[in-house]
Design a protein around this nucleic acid. Structure first.
Lengths: 232, 232
DNA sequence: ATATTAATTGTCAAACAGACAATTAATATT
DNA sequence: AATATTAATTGTCTGTTTGACAATTAATAT
């Protein structure tokens, strides 16, 4: 009979694909790796799962340490566990994707780690299987965002419909009709229109909106159709 | 700087929630655990991830060994990694859910393991966090099945619309209008009507259908609306 | 021959999706 | 000061989908 003691033991790590939005393009946050192998190469934010914490805890800890941010939107993606994915020693990694407001991070820049935002479509080659992780995360982000109102996590508290519109187009890599988009997004009832306008982008200015927290919480698990031509 | 050698190492396991459908109810396949702790208690089918295999490989191996079946529908769910989930030693487990044709399994019963089908709503208490895993798997099955044609995996090659109808009702724990259901399911274009009828269930008999493999493959990733009142 | 039962096809109004047009609120230009 | 310009916003319309509900059909049982 199989016993615990005979079984091999492995390192377990977490890696976070951190998405942000600069108002025009989707970006990911990368760090220069601080340990061998592949030291000084770009990689995802990651770390080993400690003895007293769950993988979820570890991911939150890593994000806190490297960005200073707490309570960010974090979602478990999948486990990466090919036997030879790490050349030093077998390590399984739990992939997470995180959505953060890029401006919050800029404000809390941490000099202990060399971190940098890269355009999702113009990023350096990453170590190990991190390139695959990014591709998977992007796919999952698209999938999830088509059905659930999560992209707000990448915008500031106050945002305009045009900002949201560009973000949706970026994430889905497609053009969306402006008029239908604003009708659909407002008809979800998740947005509260503010009196103030953003005048930086246009002459007319665009009204700011904020999330209706209550309805947002209630709809987080509900299905919405946030993308045109989504066959449901 | 953090180095590999200082880090703790853990056991990594897989656990499979195996779903089946007996024509009336949703069932899961459980086994009597063969090792301490909690020996002889009911648990999910699981095993440790070996040195030369990925977690996906391990899940397939475990299923093959315990059911004799290969190539079953298997989907990674999430990782379970609370520090004390296993009382003997820290073990992280990757949860998978599997969909199999219950009749295929019955034909290949393996006497080496005491396995048994249980009604999903009338199952014994399971070891560790396996009860939570079942609850999560059920939720994920519902979610996935609302958007993607996966429930066919639990039916024989030839099946009738009424069979499929009951299966959808079971999975979603709700009543679905028979007339709307058959219209919706046939309008997906995924089914091919056969000449033969199933006469066991009714006087009139219900036509058998089979999957259009090509269209099924093409639509596996596409969004469909397979559940009424799904707000998309 | 008729009743019965479950499968199947049909009907219809309301809601929704998506293509496209018109209006509005501001600034910039003449 | 009137007009052009620009982006935001509101509006229109048609075809499709949804889901509530009714009628018909193909068999067996009485």
């Amino acid at each position: 009979m199989i016993e615990y003691s005979r079984q091999p033991h492995y390192l377990v790590a977490v890696d976070c694909i951190v998405f942000g939005f600069d108002g025009e393009h989707l970006k990911i946050l990368l760090v220069k790796r601080g340990l061998e192998p592949e030291i000084n190469k770009w990689s995802l934010m990651g770390g080993f799962v400690g003895a007293e914490e769950s993988p979820d805890d570890a991911a939150n800890r890593v994000l806190k340490k490297m960005t200073g941010l707490e309570g960010v939107y974090l979602e478990q993606m999948q486990i990466y566990g090919e036997p030879n994915r790490d050349p030093i020693e077998r390590t399984l990694s739990v992939g997470y994707f995180a959505l953060i407001d890029i401006h919050k991070y800029e404000a809390q820049l941490n000099d202990d780690y060399e971190a940098e935002w890269f355009l999702i479509n113009d990023r350096p080659k990453l170590i190990f299987d991190h390139n695959q992780m990014v591709a998977d995360a992007r796919k999952k982000l698209r999938y999830k965002a088509a059905l659930h109102p999560i992209l707000f996590e990448m915008l500031p508290k106050k945002f305009t419909i045009p900002q949201l519109h560009i973000l949706f187009e970026e994430v889905n890599d497609t053009k969306i009709d402006t008029r239908n988009f604003s009708r659909k997004i407002t008809s979800t009832g998740l947005l509260i229109k503010l009196a103030e306008k953003d005048r930086t982008g246009s002459k007319k200015g665009a009204f700011y909106f904020k999330l209706d927290k209550k309805k947002y919480a209630a709809n987080a698990q509900a299905f919405l159709n946030l993308m045109p031509n989504l066959k449901v």
